[in-house]
């Protein structure tokens, strides 16, 4: 069966969804990611959906599940690269991806994940009070 590749990059896992996923493929990504988080001890998961032409309620639910499962496994998930037309459609569909962190692109997503891994106990706290 097809699988979406999961790459390990330091403390993070990287997934780029480049195919029009059928539902089973999305579900197997969900399972594979949970296993990889557990086996690698990854602290963050970055999912790039810039190639996805639609996100319907099923894919939306899978993304929310991935975020939920990784949180329980002590990892943060960031979904990046959503196309504007997909975002407009999602909101109209009634889906706001609760509990899913998003960033505009991979770079900002990585920044977000690195930020979540702070604070380094030795670092000087110059970030100010948390909002």
């Amino acid at each position: 069966m097809d699988r979406i590749p999961i790459l390990k990059m330091g403390p993070f896992l990287l997934v780029t969804i480049q195919v029009d996923m059928h539902d089973r493929l999305a579900l197997s990504l969900q399972d594979d990611l949970a296993e990889r988080i557990a086996s690698t001890g990854a602290r963050g998961v970055l999912i790039d959906i810039s190639s996805l032409e639609i996100v319907d309620s099923f894919i939306g639910r899978v993304l929310a599940n991935i975020a939920g499962v990784s949180r329980v496994l002590d990892a943060q998930t960031v979904v990046v690269g959503m196309q504007p037309a997909v975002a407009i459609t999602l909101v109209e569909l009634g889906l706001s991806l609760p509990g899913v962190r998003t960033a505009l692109n991979v770079e900002r997503g990585m920044e977000l994940l690195r930020g979540v891994m702070e604070p380094d106990p030795d670092a000087v706290d110059d970030a100010g009070p948390e909002g």
Partner: peptide, 17 residues
């Protein structure tokens, strides 16, 4: 338009499922 394509394809995906 791209937005209308996306809306229609998303609706089709929900209904086909």
């Amino acid at each position: 338009s791209l937005v209308d394509q996306t809306k229609l394809v998303t609706a089709a995906s929900e209904l086909a499922r």
